[in-house]
Amino acid sequence: MASGVKPRVKVPKTAAAGEAITIKTLISHRMESGQRKDDEGNIIPRSIINRFTCEFNGENVVDVVLEPAISTNPYLEFEALVPETGEFKFTWYDDDGSVYEETKEITVG
């Protein structure tokens, strides 16, 4: 699954100090549940994103455990506090050991 996985993140470019901002994330991933069978009747092995984290300047915002009941192309929306100018780091953990990362800068003015 490591190929063709594409993360998308929506973060405002600027914020006021201490402002609450909305963050939206989406990653292209089949989220194979492990419940389905192929045409020959064999179980298709589970292959999902099982964890997502968001940090700002090294400090945790959210840490999410995802299970197979999360839809294909997992979507997550939450709110973060921005105390100062810095960088958001988003990390998705795949069952196959792959880790996908994305970062976004935000300026506090």
């Binding site: 063709g4 594409k6 998308r8 929506k10 939206k24 989406l26 292209s28 192309n73 979507y75």
Partner: peptide, 12 residues
């Protein structure tokens, strides 16, 4: 456009 999952395939 962010909520629309179709847009990720547009980006691809």
């Amino acid at each position: 456009d962010f909520d629309n999952p179709g847009m990720i395939f547009v980006e691809k």
